[in-house]
């Protein structure tokens, strides 16, 4: 009307009430399909892909039609895509970072293990020394046991296994039967803070290594 610049494009999105209602019904139907999918017992991979596709469809329909991006200035679309792309990149980077498995890293696989270096108990920064003296030859989940211990157990049992929330775990302090410690690590101690590591995917072989480590290797 009074403004010249807006005269060359539509004042309002050309969608009619009827069309809006149809879009609303479509969105509801997609949600129903998603609900059905989540109970369908399809294979995990297929189900997740389908769910992601359907929610992406809903996402795009709402943004394009309800938020009028289809009809509005391209600038808005670019702005939104920019923010969305940044967020997606952040998501991918963060998840990749936390799932990074250094034992599968190309660099680690070819390089020889570093020679014994600094003090082994410096916070599990991945540079702990090698050699049986500190349990470096024993592997848990592909990681030297001392490293695994310092990143997973030390929060409760201390970096030097001296005991914090949980008791000290050194040969001197552990007089009991290996089977008892095996059971404790695998099944936890119900009613205490000691978690059941078997349930988090730690294998029996790994637990054996941990038991050997805490009952024979001096900190």
């Amino acid at each position: 009307m009074e403004h010249q610049a807006s005269a060359h494009h539509d004042e309002h999105p050309p969608t009619t009430i009827r069309e809006y209602v149809i879009i609303g019904v479509v969105l509801a139907v997609i949600t129903l399909i998603e609900l059905w999918l989540s109970y369908s017992g399809l294979s995990h991979g297929l189900m997740i892909s389908l769910l992601l596709i359907f929610s992406a469809m809903k996402f795009i329909i709402v943004v394009a039609m309800f938020m009028h991006l289809r009809f509005d200035s391209r600038l808005f679309t670019r702005l939104f895509i920019f923010g969305f792309a940044l967020a997606s990149a952040l998501l991918i980077a963060l998840i990749a970072m936390f799932n990074f498995d250094e034992t599968r890293s190309l660099f680690q696989a070819s390089a020889p293990p570093p020679a014994a270096t600094a003090a082994p108990q410096d916070g599990g920064d991945g540079d702990n020394g090698e050699g049986p003296a500190d349990g470096g030859a024993l592997l848990v989940k592909g990681q030297p046991v001392a490293e695994y211990f310092s990143s997973t157990c030390a929060g409760c049992h201390g970096q030097n296994r001296e005991g914090v929330v949980g008791p000290a775990l050194t040969p001197a302090s552990l007089a009991g039967d290996d089977a008892l410690y095996f059971d404790t690590i695998k099944n936890g101690r119900p009613g205490t803070a000691m978690p059941a590591w078997g349930a988090t995917g730690l294998s029996d072989a790994d637990i054996d290594v941990l038991v050997t480590f805490i009952t024979t290797v001096e900190p």
Partner: peptide, 27 residues
């Protein structure tokens, strides 16, 4: 730019909200 200030502001805000929720969903 030929667009309304308030809408522009809202879209910039929403773009930043993408990152806000992106972080929470990643976590």
């Amino acid at each position: 730019l030929g667009v309304d200030n308030r809408k522009l502001l809202m879209w910039i805000f929403l773009a930043s909200e993408c990152l806000f929720f992106g972080t929470l969903i990643s976590t």
